[in-house]
Simulated scan of single mutants.
Amino acid sequence: MTETATPETSTDEPRPIELNSVADYDALLEQHDLVLLEFVTSGCGICASMEPVLGAVVRSAPGAVATVNAGLVPDLSAEFDVRSVPTLVVLRDGEEVARLDDGFQGAETLVELLETHAVE
């Protein structure tokens, strides 16, 4: 697993984990009980606008936050039946407990969603 960083961003800044394979996904689940996955595609404008939101979620919500390029990891996209992007899936102990697949979501919504599933 690699942490993503863009040239204009400090590497000290918390960032979502970029999953590039099913093996990365499996390793993430071994390390974290609560995970927010965002499925994206290259060139998706809404997905790009979610990047700073996910950075805020990483800093203030429980659990891990990860992104998956649906086109590059088709096995995961199929496993989660991703039909549009961005699709956000919350996993608790490896099981899907929530899904948002209706476009842009604000940081507050995502933080509240993770906090809700962290206390179960």
Rank of each mutant, 00 (worst) to 15 (best):
G43T: 06
Q105P: 05
V82Y: 07
V22H: 01
S21Y: 03
V97H: 11
D26Y: 02
T41F: 00
V97M: 11
G43Q: 07
V40F: 01
D33C: 04
E95M: 07
L110Y: 09
T67W: 01
A64W: 02
P74V: 08
V35M: 10
S49A: 13
V97F: 10
E8A: 06
P16K: 12
V85I: 13
T116G: 04
E18H: 03
L72P: 00
V73E: 04
V111M: 04
S84F: 05
V58F: 05
D33I: 04
C44Q: 06
R92I: 02
T87Y: 05
D81H: 11
V119A: 14
V35Q: 09
E108S: 09
V89I: 15
V119H: 09
E115M: 08
E120D: 11
Y25F: 14
P52I: 02
E112S: 12
S77K: 07
D33W: 03
M1S: 10
G55Q: 15
A27N: 15
S21G: 06
E38A: 11
H32A: 13
A70T: 06
A66V: 12
M50Y: 05
A61G: 04
A78L: 07
Q31G: 08
G45R: 13
G103W: 12
E8P: 01
D102Y: 10
Q31H: 13
A64S: 13
A56I: 09
P52D: 05
R92G: 06
E108R: 09
T87A: 07
A118P: 03
S77G: 13
Y25Q: 01
F80L: 06
S60Q: 14
Y25S: 01
R59Q: 15
A23W: 00
T2E: 02
L29F: 00
A48F: 01
L34T: 03
E96S: 11
V89G: 13
E13G: 02
F104A: 14
D12A: 14
V111G: 10
P16C: 12
D26W: 02
S84P: 03
L37C: 14
E115V: 02
T41D: 05
D75C: 02
D81S: 12
P52Q: 05
T11D: 00
E79T: 15
R92A: 13
E108P: 06
T109I: 09
R59I: 02
I17E: 02
E95G: 01
E79C: 03
T67Y: 01
S21M: 11
S49P: 07
P14L: 09
S77C: 10
E13N: 09
Y25M: 00
E96A: 11
F80D: 04
V97I: 08
L19E: 10
G94N: 07
G94I: 05
D81R: 12
A56L: 13
S10T: 15
S49F: 13
V35D: 07
F39V: 00
A66G: 14
